[in-house]
């Protein structure tokens, strides 16, 4: 800028997390990131949790008592809600992940072609959009199914 001072206007992580005013794919992007972090936390907790059963987190040998105590934390309303939510986010993350893999291989898009006003981006239409809605619906169904088992 030839010596002129400017101020940064980078959004940073907030740029990832704020889909307001944007398209469905942007919302799916945010949920994919958030659910990814959620799944990672669940997996880490799960590994720590089960380690009590198989050999102890510090190699001190199996500890069925701590394992049973850990399990008891999930056997209440909040624990069941967390588990049911985990099912929802795992199903959404997995199905939406399939959509993203298919997008990266370019197999869910039509070929670029002549465009006419009003412009409708092909990259935001068609099969990939149906796949987002399918991921949302199936995640909710799976969550209800899991809730039925947990609360039933």
């Amino acid at each position: 800028m030839d010596g002129r001072e400017t101020a940064s206007n980078k959004r940073g992580v907030m740029g990832w997390l704020n889909p307001r005013h944007y398209n469905l794919e942007r919302w799916a992007y945010v949920f994919q990131r958030v659910t990814g972090v959620g799944i990672l936390m669940y997996v880490l907790g799960h590994i720590g949790d089960t380690s009590f059963f198989v050999g102890g987190p510090f190699g001190s040998g199996p500890d069925p008592g701590t394992w049973a105590l850990d399990l008891s934390f999930t056997e209440n309303l909040v624990g069941h809600l967390i588990l049911a939510t985990t099912v929802v986010i795992v199903v959404f993350h997995g199905l939406n992940g399939l959509r993203l893999i298919m997008a990266e291989y370019g197999i869910i898009f039509q070929k670029p072609s002549k465009i006419e006003y009003p412009y409708q981006a092909k990259g935001l239409r068609g099969l990939q959009k149906h796949m987002i809605w399918a991921a949302i619906v199936l995640a909710i169904v799976a969550g209800l199914w899991a809730g039925g088992i947990l609360f039933g």
């Binding site: 794919e25 942007r26 993203l100 981006a121």
Partner: peptide, 18 residues
Amino acid sequence: HYAGSCSAVCPKGVDPAL
């Protein structure tokens, strides 16, 4: 990561996400 907002805001129909 295919957020697609580039294509949503493009005023000329370029469709960068595609």
